[in-house]
Simulated assay, not measured.
Amino acid sequence: MMELDEIDRKILRALAEDATQNAGALGRCLGLSQPATWRRIKRLQDSGVITGRKLDLDYEKLGFGVTVFLGVKLATKGRVSLEDFERAVTAIPEVQTVEHVLGLFDYRLRVTARDIADFERVLRRRIMTLPGIGDVEANVLLSEERRPGPLG
């Protein structure tokens, strides 16, 4: 685990809030020079603390008004490999995230759809036909507040 000082934490908080900031602008906010800020960001990337920067889309503005979290329990783990299930489920464009979890379900999926009828189509025609699919529980997202996470 990499030791982070307070400046590293401030850089991470700022990038978690807006990953499009360049080293010059970020440095000005933190009282650092552009080269010093760039070196710190590069060190955080090289150490694996920063693994990438992601584009955050507003799915509702793109016409996808429904987000559903699915808990998926595989029917028989021995019959279908986890890799086969993961490969098949990640090929479904409406499935935004696939998380292998411990607990009541084997997987947690985040699925976006245009509306409930569209979600039902995706569920019946794509998800319920996946190899090894067993029990499925759906939870419709009502609202979401995103947090950058703990940076101590």
Rank of each mutant, 00 (worst) to 15 (best):
I7P: 05
R9W: 00
L12Q: 08
A14I: 04
D18P: 02
Q21G: 02
G24W: 12
A25I: 11
G27I: 05
G27F: 01
R28A: 12
C29V: 13
C29F: 12
C29T: 15
L32I: 02
S33H: 09
P35G: 06
A36L: 06
A36S: 13
A36I: 01
T37I: 02
R39M: 14
I41D: 02
K42I: 00
Q45D: 00
Q45K: 13
I50L: 07
T51N: 07
T51P: 01
T51K: 15
G52V: 03
L55K: 15
L55G: 09
D56F: 15
L57F: 15
E60M: 07
E60C: 08
F64S: 06
V66D: 02
V66M: 10
T67E: 13
F69Q: 10
F69P: 01
G71A: 11
G71L: 09
V72C: 05
V72H: 03
A75H: 12
T76C: 14
K77L: 15
K77Q: 09
K77W: 13
V80R: 05
V80P: 02
F85T: 00
F85L: 03
A88I: 04
V89Y: 01
A91C: 01
V95H: 08
V95W: 06
V95D: 07
Q96W: 06
V98A: 05
V101Q: 04
V101M: 04
R108Q: 14
L109I: 04
R110F: 03
T112W: 09
D115I: 06
A117Q: 11
A117M: 07
D118Y: 03
R121A: 13
R121V: 07
V122F: 04
L123P: 00
R124L: 10
R124A: 10
R125F: 09
R125K: 13
R125H: 12
M128R: 15
L130E: 02
P131R: 06
P131M: 05
E137V: 14
E137R: 14
N139C: 08
V140E: 10
V140F: 14
V140Y: 10
L142A: 13
S143D: 13
E144M: 08
R147W: 08
R147K: 10
